[in-house]
Design a binder for these strands. Structure first.
Lengths: 93, 93
DNA sequence: ATAAAGCGGTTTAAAATATAAACTAAAACT
DNA sequence: AGTTTTAGTTTATATTTTAAACCGCTTTAT
């Protein structure tokens, strides 16, 4: 039974990664809406994903407002795929 | 994006459930070996699964030695299946 | 021009979880 | 009889998660 990457084995972080796997970039507000999370929680979890090297977080502007966009890295993509494979061993898929 | 049942969204508890889904009953020692967990951690997590009504824990004897066996309940079976369905929404399966 | 209300976040602190270490009790070995 | 091993439980600690409070800037209303 393989280990499940603890960085991905968290509902919110997994949801974020799942979105980013399909979308090539997404901003903070969008992720917050899609995941129905609080801003505080999302902020913390994006930090962890970023620190792990699974995503990049870029702060820019949309007009006058700040805009934080996220993208999955190659490392993140790989980790996600490995996580899915490991999980299959648990789910009998 | 569906909620992931927090009782099942834990590596060790999921591993235990995964085993019990295929095996109709398993004892403490077997579960400990298969999951490569410490006895303490396993004890706590079996308690949680049991309190949630997902498994039954029966204390009996094998010869003179105590033997704790576990079985998944119908409720547990259902919860596991729902968890798997919910997860699929995250994994793009 | 100033105050108040919103937006986009971050920081902090509190609650919940997971894990390991220490412990208990009985059995088996020496 | 004394020590070691087995089968677990309890307690304490570390880690995570989550929410609440906060910060800086912008927009709206007065």
């Amino acid at each position: 039974m393989k280990e499940l990457d603890p960085i991905l084995h968290s509902q919110l972080r997994l949801a974020v990664m799942s979105i980013l796997m399909n979308v090539d970039e997404a901003d903070f507000v969008y992720l917050k809406e899609q995941t129905e999370s609080t801003a505080g929680n999302l902020s913390v979890q994006l930090d962890k994903l970023s620190t792990a090297g699974y995503i990049t977080v870029t702060k820019g502007f949309a007009g006058k407002k700040t805009r934080t966009t996220c993208q999955v890295t190659d490392q993140g993509r790989k980790a996600f795929e490995e996580y899915v494979e490991a999980l299959k061993g648990y789910l009998n898929l």
